[in-house]
Amino acid sequence: MSWMHTVFALILLPAIATGMFRILKGPTAADRMMTAQLFGTCGVAILLLLGTGMGTPVLLDIALVFALLAALATMTFVRRTWQYSSKRNHGNPIQ
């Protein structure tokens, strides 16, 4: 157990927490989704630090899954939700 890594992970927590502000402000759905991406990268970093700090290498695998899921979430959102809502709400032809 190394307290140092836990402290580093704690320092990263505000980085995620402040990102929430962007969810509130928007303005577009993609801006909100970018916070999810922030959760992805920051979350991976926190998990890696905690995995070393607490001596639980399993957290490395969780970080890996986390990274994959964040990417999938963003891609699914862009391909499915955002492009559809553009057609429906604003009538903007795509391209």
Partner: peptide, 8 residues
């Protein structure tokens, strides 16, 4: 990381 959030 912190400046990434500040930029966001």
């Amino acid at each position: 990381f912190l400046s990434g959030t500040v930029g966001l």
